[in-house]
Computed example of a mutant assay.
Amino acid sequence: MQPIFHGIILAFGLILPLGVQNVFVFTQGVSQPSLLRALPAAITAAICDTILIVLAILGLSVIVLQFEWIRLILLVGGIIFLLYMGKVIWSSGAASLEGKEALPIRKQIVFALSVSLLNPHALLDTIGVIGTSALKYSGQQQVLFMLTCIVVSWLWFFGLTIAGALLKKMQIGAAVFVLFNKLSAVFIWGTAVYLLISLF
């Protein structure tokens, strides 16, 4: 039971803070014309987290944390994608509420991939913290710890998407959703600036 409890606490601790990945998945729940159309973002984010968790526990964390040039590539790539994604969300407007400007499936997947795999802090948190924490377990206990972290991730992203879709059904005025898009874009740009500063 200890690996399961540890996995739940650790996974929620890493995933709960308001990050770019969470904002994007939630925004898709709000802006897509149906819950089904918003699922590609949630599924992609969950798959990416699953891959990172598995790699972290298999020892990739040791490699990434030892080479500075890998960290620099992650930072630069993350900044570029975040700036672009912020621009798209900023200009999405109220029309996305009717599905007129909702992101198509391909763009959802690309953006979800970018905020999951090119977000240095999320990447290093997953690889560094989960990978390091898994070292205390071996065999079946390590597998239980890994599976628990993965299940929490999937439940969280689907929950965010459903929450966004439910909020949309509450018939809140379009202006509120436009404001939400603007604030999301500002948050994403702020994250990009923070990453840029961290380069120096």
Score class of each variant (00 low, 15 high):
residue 146 M to Y: 11
residue 166 L to D: 04
residue 26 F to Y: 14
residue 75 L to E: 07
residue 71 R to H: 15
residue 62 V to W: 08
residue 92 S to H: 02
residue 191 T to F: 12
residue 9 I to N: 05
residue 111 F to T: 07
residue 40 P to H: 06
residue 125 D to M: 06
residue 45 A to Q: 07
residue 130 I to V: 14
residue 107 K to F: 08
residue 64 V to D: 05
residue 132 T to Y: 10
residue 45 A to N: 08
residue 51 I to R: 03
residue 87 K to W: 15
residue 33 P to Y: 12
residue 76 V to R: 02
residue 100 K to M: 11
residue 29 G to K: 04
residue 196 L to K: 02
residue 193 V to A: 14
residue 141 Q to L: 09
residue 119 N to I: 07
residue 79 I to E: 03
residue 114 S to P: 00
residue 150 I to V: 15
residue 21 Q to H: 10
residue 190 G to I: 10
residue 40 P to L: 06
residue 156 W to I: 01
residue 105 I to A: 06
residue 171 Q to Y: 13
residue 123 L to D: 01
residue 4 I to W: 09
residue 64 V to H: 03
residue 181 N to R: 09
residue 80 I to D: 04
residue 175 A to F: 11
residue 61 S to D: 15
residue 187 F to S: 08
residue 113 L to M: 13
residue 83 L to A: 13
residue 200 F to R: 08
residue 143 V to G: 00
residue 92 S to L: 01
residue 92 S to F: 00
residue 13 G to S: 10
residue 194 Y to P: 00
residue 170 M to I: 08
residue 56 A to W: 09
residue 147 L to P: 00
residue 65 L to F: 09
residue 117 L to W: 07
residue 187 F to E: 07
residue 19 G to Y: 10
residue 194 Y to F: 10
residue 145 F to I: 07
residue 113 L to A: 06
residue 182 K to Y: 15
residue 131 G to N: 12
residue 86 G to E: 11
residue 158 F to T: 06
residue 61 S to N: 15
residue 135 L to Y: 10
residue 58 L to C: 02
residue 81 F to W: 08
residue 112 A to M: 02
residue 26 F to M: 06
residue 8 I to W: 09
residue 36 L to S: 09
residue 185 A to V: 04
residue 67 F to C: 00
residue 109 I to H: 04
residue 137 Y to E: 14
residue 168 K to Q: 14
residue 158 F to L: 14
residue 27 T to G: 01
residue 166 L to H: 06
residue 86 G to T: 10
residue 42 A to Q: 11
residue 117 L to S: 02
residue 33 P to R: 06
residue 143 V to H: 11
residue 91 S to M: 06
residue 69 W to H: 11
residue 163 A to L: 14
residue 27 T to H: 12
residue 30 V to E: 05
residue 131 G to R: 11
residue 34 S to L: 01
residue 10 L to P: 00
residue 118 L to C: 05
residue 137 Y to C: 03
residue 78 G to Q: 03
residue 72 L to Q: 13
residue 43 I to G: 02
residue 129 V to F: 11
residue 131 G to H: 11
residue 98 E to F: 01
residue 188 I to R: 07
residue 33 P to L: 06
residue 73 I to S: 13
residue 199 L to T: 13
residue 51 I to K: 02
residue 7 G to K: 08
residue 102 A to Y: 04
residue 76 V to Y: 05
residue 109 I to E: 05
residue 109 I to R: 02
residue 29 G to C: 03
residue 54 V to S: 10
residue 67 F to D: 10
residue 161 T to D: 02
residue 41 A to Q: 10
residue 96 S to P: 00
residue 68 E to N: 11
residue 35 L to N: 04
residue 197 I to E: 08
residue 117 L to V: 04
residue 5 F to S: 09
residue 53 I to P: 00
residue 121 H to A: 04
residue 72 L to I: 14
residue 131 G to T: 13
residue 184 S to W: 07
residue 151 V to S: 13
residue 63 I to H: 09
residue 77 G to H: 03
residue 14 L to F: 04
residue 3 P to L: 09
residue 78 G to Y: 03
residue 194 Y to T: 10
residue 47 I to K: 05
residue 53 I to M: 09
residue 149 C to K: 07
residue 17 P to Q: 14
residue 145 F to E: 06
residue 35 L to G: 01
residue 116 S to L: 02
residue 174 A to F: 05
residue 59 G to L: 05
residue 175 A to L: 11
residue 56 A to R: 08
